[in-house]
Design a protein around this nucleic acid. Sequence first.
DNA 1: ATCCGAACTTGACACTGTAAAGATTTTATT
DNA 2: AATAAAATCTTTACAGTGTCAAGTTCGGAT
Lengths: 209, 209
Amino acid sequence: MTGRKTYHHGDLKNALIRAGAEILAAEGVGGLSLRKVAKWAGVSHAAPYAHFADKQSLIAAISTEGFRQLDGRISAIAERHSGEPSRQVVEAAWAYAAFAQEDPGRFRLMFSSVLEKEKEYPEFVEATGQNFERVVGIVEACQRAGILRPGPAELMAVAVWGQVHGIIALALEGQISHVVTKDRSLREIIVFALNQITLTELDFRFPRS
Amino acid sequence: MTGRKTYHHGDLKNALIRAGAEILAAEGVGGLSLRKVAKWAGVSHAAPYAHFADKQSLIAAISTEGFRQLDGRISAIAERHSGEPSRQVVEAAWAYAAFAQEDPGRFRLMFSSVLEKEKEYPEFVEATGQNFERVVGIVEACQRAGILRPGPAELMAVAVWGQVHGIIALALEGQISHVVTKDRSLREIIVFALNQITLTELDFRFPRS
DNA sequence: ATCCGAACTTGACACTGTAAAGATTTTATT
DNA sequence: AATAAAATCTTTACAGTGTCAAGTTCGGAT
């Protein structure tokens, strides 16, 4: 509910995206309404329509922003561990998991088709594409290092990314048996799964420093 | 919009579940409203409250029914290909994919946290648990046959199921690069991915007969 | 036969997304 | 600098939503 003195807000579009993300984090997808976002940004309930065609458009924007942030984290990891591809996969996968756990609402908004016709939002498509390319890059590095089998990198990327994504998604929805989560962290589970794919053993422990 | 002559419907609860499933298939998650379901079943808009505490409860019921059907399909496959574990994984995974593609709306309802507090619905929990057990059974058969590495079957099940689920979910949301889907069927992609995990090569082709 | 509780209807309320019309401010054009 | 145009924001309105409360109708137990 940021008040304001001028009639024009100045940066309403971004304010709405931010407000939406905050409501999302606080109340989840179900609690995200256009009117609430508007109130939160300190404008009338119809003001968002000056910047977004409809609710879906705002969702697309929030989602896109999420993908950009995720990509930022993963690219940072790829850089930090360049030359050590096995760390790249593990830490990228973990970053993905941490991203989901920090803000499940946003993760669901991004991946659970709250956005109905994603191909209609070029920015969204671009952001998701960039994300995929990042994964492909890491996979290629692993293939060169003999950590992953040779073969079409994009296809291999789907195999790896799909696995990580699937486990995280299932974990988020509480669909992973208690028997499994009982005495294992999500990180251990993910690395165990990755180890079924990789040719050399990955270490699940966090890197020192 | 099934009309009726008697004041009491007779089997409204199940009729509502069916109506909900049909609307879901036709219009997707976004088009599913309690009032529409009621109208479709030929009752007034508040009638559902005699059988379901709220919308979430109806969703839980539809979702649970979906899990039962899915379990039915997978158990049939496990039986049909008993003694051939490699076929069991491939066909079970494919059944999962087919189930998702036949009715994406229902699949999303089941797996994309449209249902918010799933643990509050014992039937739902039970159905999902049974589903998981089915996967564990197949995984164990594969381990005995030397198709999957030894190790905790539940954990291995998460690795395998997670991968299949992840790929299907991403495919459903259109998040798999065109480069990959261009000249490969979803079935090929899934089997390629499974082949990264298994110790013996799986065949992606459909079984004759 | 009658009473009771379950199943169902009607009416209401607050909240939602969205459109239209008006008010205010900035920007562009002359 | 004056005015026109465009963008931003407000107000009002409407249909659709989930849910509740109060009333109606019915089947079954006593």
